Simulated scan of single mutants.
Amino acid sequence: MTEDEVLGEFRASQALLEGHFLLSSGRHSAHYLQCARVLMNPMRASRLALAIAQRIPRDVKKEINKVVSPAMGGLIIGHEMGRALGVDAMFVERPTGTFELRRGFSLEPGDKVLMVEDVVTTGLSSREAIRAIEEAGGQVIAAASLIDRSAGAVDLGVPFYPLIALNFPTYAPEEVPESLAAIPAIKPGSRAKA
């Protein structure tokens, strides 16, 4: 899939939003990608996962025997990546603020894991998920995501295969341009406060 085709999927599902958004990374942006909306259609989610799988080199794919994704955002795409690769998919979650495997999920020592996210901006959550996977005995040999919002700048410590890399600017709170600051910020993601 090309970048235009991927963004077309986001637009078709009304998942590419414009306004003033406070991202889960703490940064601000005029654009927000609502991956839950783009993934709510199972056929679209399957197509996107297959497209990500095509980006992963064959020799890496052959080694992967588990997919692990961080809850909440990575659940659907992680499940679809497991289907695309023909391996089990599970997730880590933060019941006490730190990612961990729960719900009977476990990894065998040396399991070769693909860590899958929906969107990577700073890579903080991805690195935390990778650390939890390794502490549980898995060996993360690669990471993947639908979107790399860092435009290729993020370093996860493992090979990283995003479907597309975007350069929607993000801003630290003290760097928000006046035109964006004039719009009330909303936090649309799964970690938004109710």
Rank of each mutant, 00 (worst) to 15 (best):
Q54S: 15
I147S: 01
R149P: 05
E18F: 11
L166N: 00
E9Q: 12
E5Q: 15
A165T: 13
I130K: 03
S29D: 03
A132P: 03
Y32H: 04
P42D: 11
E93N: 11
A192M: 13
A185E: 08
G97L: 03
G26M: 06
L156V: 05
V68D: 04
D59K: 07
L75F: 10
A142E: 14
V158G: 10
V176N: 01
M81A: 09
L33F: 11
D118A: 12
I130M: 08
I186A: 02
A165W: 06
V140F: 04
L75Q: 07
R11Q: 11
I141D: 11
A132R: 04
A132I: 09
Y32W: 12
S125K: 00
F160M: 10
F91Q: 02
L22Q: 06
M90A: 09
G110H: 04
I52F: 09
L124Y: 12
E93H: 12
Q34T: 05
R83W: 01
M90S: 05
A151S: 15
Y161R: 00
S126H: 02
A45P: 03
V116M: 07
L33S: 00
Q139D: 14
E18L: 07
A182F: 09
P159W: 06
A181P: 06
A71P: 06
I52L: 06
A192Y: 12
G189P: 02
G157C: 12
A53T: 07
V67P: 01
G82M: 03
E80F: 13
D111Y: 06
L23R: 00
G138W: 00
G104V: 13
P173T: 04
E5W: 08
D155Y: 09
A71V: 07
F91S: 06
E108A: 14
A165D: 11
R37M: 10
T121F: 00
D88A: 15
E9H: 14
G157F: 11
R55S: 14
I77R: 02
